[in-house]
């Protein structure tokens, strides 16, 4: 068989996969979003969404908390990845970072319930150092803490790979030319590892938009995000159209993030799934 003909054939598995497991589900969600509860075609779901203060407020909440989670994750992950990449047994450390992702998110959430509860370890410690027990569960900070903890591996991985790819000779050259540590970091290391940071942001921000189990289990529904509304529309009110509409909005938000963080260079170490 001539080589030219086989070229496009190699694309078939890819397109088949994308078509069946990415495009088809998204198309179904978009399709559903145009139907009301009586299965009549309508644009009302979108009108309701954009006219309702509740949904808009929820959107703002979702984006705000996803931003906060991404910010804190980045704050911890970048230095962590940097230090790890300079350690002797870095593969072992990397494995230790990845390990928690093998555990189901619900189990981790329940573990935190135990840690943060009135009689939990965290409060025992606070009592020990004389602060006394505090309400830790069902607060916004506990939600942020747990969400950040869960997302950290997904941020560390791409950054770690980007730092490993960075040739030490750039850093040496920068030092030789008289740059300070800060200048070396800001002018050389940071721009060269930016693609890793960007894919890390994608891998963290997007799932953070709809962390609805955590908002209930750890946040006690003190934080309501769009995920909560989707769950309610699909399970309680059976208004799949409205649920899909919110889903579409989330998908659009994700596309926007993808566009903003799109890097020209392909990076390794994207979220494994």
């Amino acid at each position: 068989m001539p080589h030219r003909h086989t070229n496009w054939l190699y694309g078939i598995p890819y397109w088949l996969w994308i078509g069946l497991f990415v495009i088809a589900p998204v198309a179904l969600i978009i399709y559903q979003s145009f139907f009301n509860i009586d299965s009549h075609f309508t644009l009302n779901n979108y009108a309701t969404y954009f006219h309702s203060g509740t949904y808009l407020q929820m959107t703002v909440n979702s984006v705000w908390y996803a931003l906060l989670v991404t910010f804190f994750t980045l704050l911890i992950s970048y230095p962590a990845a940097y230090i790890m990449s300079h350690l002797k047994h870095r593969d072992l450390w990397l494995l230790l970072i990845i390990l928690p992702t093998w555990i189901n998110i619900l189990l981790k959430a329940y573990a935190f319930i135990g840690i943060f509860s009135q009689a939990g370890i965290a409060n025992q410690f606070l009592t020990l150092i004389g602060i006394g027990p505090r309400q830790l569960l069902f607060t916004k900070s506990s939600f942020l803490f747990v969400a950040t903890y869960i997302q950290i591996p997904f941020m560390i991985l791409p950054i770690y790979n980007a730092i490993l790819d960075l040739s030490p000779s750039y850093v040496n050259a920068s030092r030789d030319l008289g740059a300070t540590n800060w200048q070396t970091f800001w002018r050389v290391i940071w721009p060269l590892t930016l693609p890793g940071v960007k894919s890390g942001i994608q891998a963290v921000f997007i799932p953070s938009l709809s962390l609805f189990m955590l908002t209930r289990l750890i946040g006690g529904n003190k934080i309501i995000t769009l995920g909560t509304a989707i769950e309610e529309h699909f399970l309680t009110t059976m208004n799949w159209g409205m649920g899909s509409t919110i889903g579409v909005v989330l998908i659009i938000a994700m596309v926007i993030i993808m566009i903003f963080t799109n890097s020209d260079k392909p990076t390794k170490g994207d979220r494994p799934s």
């Binding site: 509860i37 509740t54 929820m58």
Partner: peptide, 19 residues
Amino acid sequence: SPDKVGEYNDLYLEFKMHH
């Protein structure tokens, strides 16, 4: 009716939002 169920849930969601 589905509309009323929706109304109960929307109001409840608003309460949760402000809580």
